[in-house]
Structure formats: structure tokens, C-alpha cells
Design a protein around this nucleic acid. Structure first.
Lengths: 189, 189
DNA sequence: ACCTGAACACCGTTCAAGT
DNA sequence: ACCTGAACACCGTTCAAGT
């Protein structure tokens, strides 16, 4: 057929990433190895290197997907403070939606410069439309992402979570912290 | 001699941690292995398990030392907002003072419940003295640490840092974010 | 173009045995 | 009490060779 590539490979990049998320969900980050992943795909480990330069690239692609979910999950709003808060909440949800999501994003390196600038533009855009200049938009974005990543990291730390849960309300404190951060931003000038 | 333990072991826990920081500084987190660490101490890898239950415990002890440096580095101040901001700055410095400090603290699990409650008490104390109740103190602490850990994580991410450095002033934005967070905290009631 | 087999240089951890 | 030697069950990655 015209639409079929000659000699149908078993794999493609999408399947590889999907399988990686499957492995992550079932066994966690420390058991997400190239060898196990290959096993789950019915293939030998070196085969994966046809689709991905190395494990770091794979993790980078996975992180990309988590951030994409956060952007998709942030509802449209009418002012930039509300947008930042909604995005922060969506990002936390995106981290929690996948096992070890925060830890994954903490160690993942961006796969390319284009990745980072896309990222930057993607959040700058709505903020600029809502009246913020580029510089403040980027700076506030960086703070919100940092806060949420750090929070999700602690929250996903089993022992720490359990010890703190007795004295700390994670939901209320996250909301309070995010709200404080966004409320505190000041636009100079 | 009276002060000498019979049959002087070559090692102790302090030396182990010190050597681990040495290895971290020289080769980075991914080359901090039990085997290399043992090599640096002139000993076989299994010997380390006399002093530490496993690698996770070692990392936990290292993280403990980094947080301790932050507490030591925060100058005494007269109101709780100033204290939180000073602590946030000191924590960032503590993360940056050691190679991969933020990543280390992101993956380290607290070595014990006592560790976490000490931690909590240590920061709650000055805040409570400065007029904050326990609940708010803990909540604000968690937010500040989260923000700083997240920030330091991105900052230490080589590619991300380089790509962002062109569009973002890391110093100014960190200061602005931390200030915003602390300014935004509200005490209900 | 896509995948295997075999290899290289590693890991963390256990455990019997030595001193 | 403290440490070694040998082993177990793994890693990521390269690369010649197969199809």
C-alpha cells in the first residue's frame, strides 16, 4: 500500500515513549532501565538506540510530555496572576499524574535549545497577551515552575511525606504557597 | 593509651561522609558510587556497609549536612519575613556550595523521622519566637524550601541554564521570586 | 533500515571468611 | 570489631554482524 513504509519496523519513537511511561508507572523511575524497557517491547536493548541517542534523551522527551500536559491542563483565564496560579496547579497535577513525575523532570535535561525556547514562548505568550512584558513573564514563570517542582519533589519523597503529613496539610499549604508567590509578584515601573 | 580505642579502625562515619563530598566535588553525583568511594578510602566496597546501611543512607546524611549549612548561614533577624528570606538565600548558597547539591537533596530520603522533626523544629523555633504559630511556620518553611530547591535544580541543569541565561537574569529573578513568596504570605485570622 | 549478539566497563549489595 | 574476596543480579552503551 502507498501509506505503508516498506518493511514495517516494530517500533517507533512514540511507542518507545509510551512504553517508557508504562514501565515508569508499573515499576518506578529506578527500574526504568533501557534493558527492561527493551524487554517490555520484545526487543534487545541496543535496538532502542536506533530511536533515541541515549537514556537522557528519552527522559528529556518524557519530561516534555509532562510539561505539555500541564499547559494543556491550564484553563484560559483573564489576568496573568490567575493564569500563573492555574498553571501552577496544573503543573502539580501533571507531576502527580505520573509516578515519579517530579523526580523525572528534576533530572531530565532539555533535549534541545528549541525545546527550552518553545517552552518559554508557550508560557510567555498568554502572559504577554494578558499585559505582562516578556522579561517579567519569564521571570515569574521560572519562579512558579521552581516552586511547584520543589513542592512535588518533597511530596513524592515517601518518608518525608509521611513524617510531615502529621504536622502539615499538603493541600492547604501548597495552595497557600502558590497563592502567596503569585500575589507577591510586583511589576516594576 | 586511654583515649585510643583498641585496634584503631581506618574509617569512621565522619570520614566516610567527608570522602563522599570529596568525590562529589571532583566527579559529580553520577560518579559517586560506593565502589569509587571505597577506592578513594583505600578499602573495598563492602567495608562501607559497616558504617552505613546503604547508599541511600549516605546520601541522606550528606543532604543533612547541606541543610545544616543553610541554617548556620542564615543570620539572625528580627521579623519572620526577613528570617524566611534570609534562610532562603542561605539555602540556595548551600545548594550551590557543593556540586550537584540540589540534585542530591532532591533524591535524598531523610535518614529518620527524628531527622525530619529536628528539621521542622529548627526552623519553626525562630519563626515562633518572631511571632508566628507552629502551623504557619511549617507551611511557610515548606514553601520556601520548595521554591529554593526547585530553583537550584533548574539552575544546576547545564543545558537549561545555558539556554535560559540568554533571556533570564537568574540572580534578579531568584531574588524577585523569593521576595514575592515571602511578601505574599498571609496569616489568617 | 532496523535489529541481534557479544562485549566493555561499570553498578549496589550480600555473605562467608579472614584477622 | 572491622575488613576482604567472591559472587549475584544488574546497569548504559558500542559495534560488528545479520536480515
Amino acid at each position: 500500500m502507498l501509506m505503508t513504509r516498506r518493511s514495517d519496523p516494530n517500533l517507533d519513537r512514540e511507542q518507545l515513549i509510551a512504553a517508557a511511561f508504562g514501565q515508569l508507572e508499573e515499576e518506578g523511575l529506578e527500574r526504568l532501565s533501557m534493558r527492561r524497557l527493551a524487554g517490555r517491547l520484545g526487543v534487545q536493548a541496543p535496538a532502542l538506540y536506533w530511536y533515541v541517542a541515549d537514556k537522557a534523551e528519552l527522559l528529556g522527551l518524557m519530561a516534555r510530555e509532562i510539561y505539555a500536559a500541564a499547559y494543556a491542563g491550564a484553563p484560559p483565564v483573564t489576568d496573568w496572576r490567575a493564569w500563573l496560579e492555574a498553571f501552577g496547579r496544573a503543573l502539580r497535577d501533571a507531576f502527580r499524574a505520573r509516578r515519579d513525575g517530579a523526580r523525572l523532570c528534576a533530572i531530565a535535561k532539555p533535549s534541545s535549545a528549541r525545546d527550552v525556547s518553545d517552552h518559554a514562548r508557550r508560557i510567555a505568550a498568554p502572559l504577554v497577551v494578558l499585559g505582562l512584558d516578556q522579561t517579567h513573564a519569564l521571570s515569574f514563570q521560572a519562579s512558579v515552575i521552581s516552586f511547584v517542582l520543589g513542592w512535588a519533589t518533597f511530596e513524592a519523597n515517601g518518608p518525608m511525606h509521611d513524617y510531615l503529613a502529621e504536622m502539615l496539610d499538603f493541600e492547604a499549604s501548597f495552595d497557600a504557597g502558590l497563592a502567596a508567590l503569585v500575589r507577591g509578584f510586583e511589576v516594576a515601573g
